[in-house]
Nucleic acid binder design. Structure first.
Lengths: 353, 353
DNA sequence: ATTTTGAATGTTAGCGCTACCATTCAAACA
DNA sequence: TGTTTGAATGGTAGCGCTAACATTCAAAAT
């Protein structure tokens, strides 16, 4: 790591005949490997990338040479020459929220198995830096871009389309996807939760929801279904994204003060729900006897809260894997027949509702 | 995104004289920009990378040309030519745990401001795939590698040293850093917590701890200090990493069954502590009256639990920023005088202990 | 008037790899 | 026997950019 002094040869001589060029990293290149293996550079390249097109003998010699020299291919050079960077950009609002982590993790792992790396981009919830970020991403010439929980500006959308890079939008079923999409319907989630609560006998439905776009869709679905079912939405509290345990506590306090008769709370995230449970506990209100609590996300802790949390499960892992599959398909030149995949969701019934 | 057919010119002609090469991405290059601006390619390059070395006039013309053509520099080509990829690899055990998120987020943001992107690598807690991952990373020729919460194998360590890429280890103060390091002493954390609890009057100290390396160091510091202070460690429960709310609940059950008289629990993460609080609530045991609970990490929710959680605060944000600073310094060719930075920690006193 | 400077620009030659188009040469065929 | 095939290999020419050196030409110094 430190600047290690280049050792000169034992017997001091005049400047070596074949001076190393001052350019380049000085590390081992494919040509070096080829020389050691006694083949041409292109054969060495094929041995590494398309081993089936090379003879047994050449393959073995190249592989030996690689392990003897400790050669690691320079993917910048490879990417430049082949127009395939094997990089995929993952764009999230922020990595700090737990919601999309499962997706990013699955995406990273699935892509790594196919030899792709993930480049991380955080747009922030504001979308202000989105343009600069997009330039930084496009500049790397990624083989794909995965948008997770991102509301892209019209301008950004246009830029993405113009580049021709495969794009996968996730976590939402928009009517007009940029390219490919894997998600589920947030409105249907809201409706399903309302139906569940009403059929369980709850009649005074309330909601604590983040002010982001997808949470808004769930709220709409919830409210519409509640109205359709003849109970309506008796109260709502909106909190800023990203949600916290604290905003859940606040949400319940707020609801109780304004709508003391409500008997069920649909929260736009499990974190909010946990906050609601916490506040209920602090006020000595028992859940679900006094009111039901419904979460969203089925995060890791949902089965271990007290009471355990009834929530909506979304398979973030599957979303990540499917996104990876989409990208790899495209990168290898195949066309994707079904560009939109609805992964659906399920209700996980536990004790809180 | 889709395969858009290349439109031929209006009037069908014979094969155009200057056929486009079948290679290349077909997108706008720096030469195109230079041509539009009426300067040479290198001047255009300088206008973009070192604007101060170019005349006012040339700068303006190049910038106009860039915005007219929608040019985005190809960083693969730039990186190859200059041996500076402006990529930084961030290695974490898994992105799914909340502990290092703050660090990764801060790192990504700070680096983005200096024009660097972050490439994500997940080693898994096992460290089995670590070697392949290391190859994938080195292949990108990153300008730096940030190790967060990673126990690197001796072999991996050797490889990293051999490449000469700047390395920053974080979240731990190891006695023999590979290169640069920003962290704090986990043993001192353990000792500080023990001292705090003893001076607050607790005498039967117990611990619920994950089985990872750093948690082990905190436990050691805790146990040593407890012994030194004459109270000792009365009980311990070890759970597998990564920690969950569920393992916290289990931990408390386990401790209570084996050491019913214990009066304080130090948890190796806030998540575990939240689990302990949850289990206490489920058993109707009041905290801190029956026993104290101490966390680690000061995650976002710690101030909003019931009771609020006394914990150890580590500034993950500062760690990420400092790591970014280290990498950028090195990448720009400066040498870093102080290679090891101890960011320390602080105890956040709340209600649970 | 001549030299010296240095800022601005340009020319050339790669960076390390792979696409494309040969070429070779054995086995398979007519 | 000559021809066709196709698998294996190699040579060449870039991919889009920048380091290193070369050149130009005005202003400053002699």
């Amino acid at each position: 790591m430190s600047e290690q002094s280049t050792r000169t040869s034992e017997t001091p001589t005049l400047v070596s005949k074949e001076r190393r060029s001052r350019r380049g990293s000085g590390s081992i290149t494919l040509s070096d490997v080829a020389k050691v293996a006694g083949v041409s550079a292109i054969t060495a390249s094929r041995a590494l990338n398309t081993p089936e097109r090379v003879s047994r003998d050449a393959l073995k010699r190249v592989r030996d040479a690689v392990s003897r020299t400790g050669y690691v291919p320079n993917m910048l050079a490879g990417g430049l020459a082949s127009s395939r960077s094997r990089l995929v950009a993952a764009l999230v609002p922020t990595i700090a929220g737990p919601v999309f982590l499962e997706t990013v993790q699955a995406l990273t792992e699935a892509l790594a198995e196919s030899g792709y790396q993930v480049m991380l981009g955080q747009s922030g919830y504001s979308g202000a830096r989105e343009d600069a970020l997009l330039d930084a991403i496009i500049g790397r010439r990624p083989d794909g871009i995965v948008l997770t929980g991102i509301m892209h500006s019209a301008e950004g959308r246009r830029r993405l389309l113009a580049t021709g890079i495969p794009v996968v939008e996730t976590w939402d079923l928009t009517p007009t996807p940029i390219d490919m999409l894997v998600g589920f319907s947030h409105e249907k989630v809201g409706a399903a939760v309302a139906e569940y609560l009403v059929s369980a006998g709850y009649k005074k439905l309330a909601i604590v929801t983040a002010d982001d776009h997808r949470a808004g869709l769930r709220r709409k679905g919830f409210e519409d279904a509640a109205t359709r079912l003849g109970v309506g939405l008796v109260g709502a509290c909106t909190v800023p994204a990203p949600t916290t345990l604290g905003s859940g506590r606040f949400g319940l306090s707020d609801l109780l003060s304004r709508f003391p008769h409500m008997d069920a709370v649909f929260c736009s995230s499990d974190i909010l729900a946990l906050g609601v449970l916490t506040e209920a506990q602090a006020r000595n209100l028992s859940v679900p006897a006094r009111f039901a609590v419904f979460g969203f996300g089925d995060l890791g802790f949902a089965g271990d809260t007290f009471p355990t949390l009834t929530t909506v499960r979304v398979d973030g892992n599957a979303i990540g894997h499917q996104a990876a599959r989409f990208i790899v398909e495209r990168a290898e030149g195949r066309t994707v027949a079904e560009r939109v995949i609805d992964l659906g969701f399920s209700i996980v019934k536990r004790d809180s509702a």
